[in-house]
Write a protein that binds this DNA or RNA. Structure first.
Lengths: 130, 130
DNA sequence: GCACCCGTACTCGGATAAATATTGTCCGAGTCTGAAAGG
DNA sequence: CCTTTCAGACTCGGACAATATTTATCCGAGTACGGGTGC
């Protein structure tokens, strides 16, 4: 079990955008170059972040991606879930009784982690770097 | 990101062993039948649990698997790590500076979950069922 | 100077391919048990 | 009655196959900017 590389890319790109250009737009090409990553693949990841409402894309000549105004409130959990989806990390394969106790416990552990990720915003992260 | 089905099988089999036969030995065949799962695949999972020192296998005619004496102290985390390995669920793909802040935060979240799984033992689980 | 057209640089999204991880099967080898065979 | 042998039931572990997921590429379509052309 591992977070996918896509999540890694997404988190780093968000951090980079926060640090570098909170207002200006930046092309996929530059972002990809900066992290040495395939541009086309990165663009698919960015598309997900756009759909999740964290960044916006501007088409056309001087287009590219840029943070939305609410960037400071975006949490780690938001970014992770935008990429990985919101499905829980355990699905009991059996059907025995009303609710699987194992499932319940794993989900409880998961929610401990999630609430931590929810409490960490990009603003917190940016502050820590400086 | 998801826990593998193997983890699901492992947790359920451990729970079943605790409930049913804390002392007696039980064949893969019966365990597999009980959960409607491929015996050969289950046996690979059980092998991992044996190596992790949670159950023991007895060869021969009336052989099979059985809990080891320390079963009550086995935690969720033990079982999960026996199957999934102990690698952390995030590896930063980049090398920038001494330590990636993103990596650090994700690992911190992970450890929140792990410490919860560490605190839940099979004994706790069994108690909850009865 | 103004309106129009058109090329360029970009996003968007679907189709597809490659790589990797997970899930599962098959089979040969080793091991213990219990029972049968022989002395 | 005692020993030996042998078949059965199981574990162990490696090799292999099928499937799902992740990672990545390719390409066609749409969109905005900016410059050029004609009026």
């Amino acid at each position: 079990m591992k977070y996918s590389r896509a999540t890694d890319y997404a988190l780093h790109t968000m951090l980079f955008l926060v640090q570098a250009t909170p207002k200006e737009t930046m092309s996929v090409h530059k972002l990809a170059e900066r992290h040495d990553v395939s541009p086309t693949y990165l663009s698919k990841i960015l598309t997900k972040l756009v759909k999740a409402g964290m960044i916006e894309s501007l088409p056309g000549m001087s287009g590219g991606y840029k943070l939305k105004s609410n960037w400071a409130d975006i949490s780690f959990l938001d970014v992770i879930q935008a990429i990985e989806g919101t499905a829980s990390l355990f699905d009991c394969s059996f059907d025995h009784g009303p609710q699987c106790p194992i499932q319940r416990i794993v989900l409880q552990g998961e929610s401990k982690m999630e609430s931590y990720f929810k409490s960490m915003t990009l603003a917190d992260l940016a502050k820590e770097i400086k």
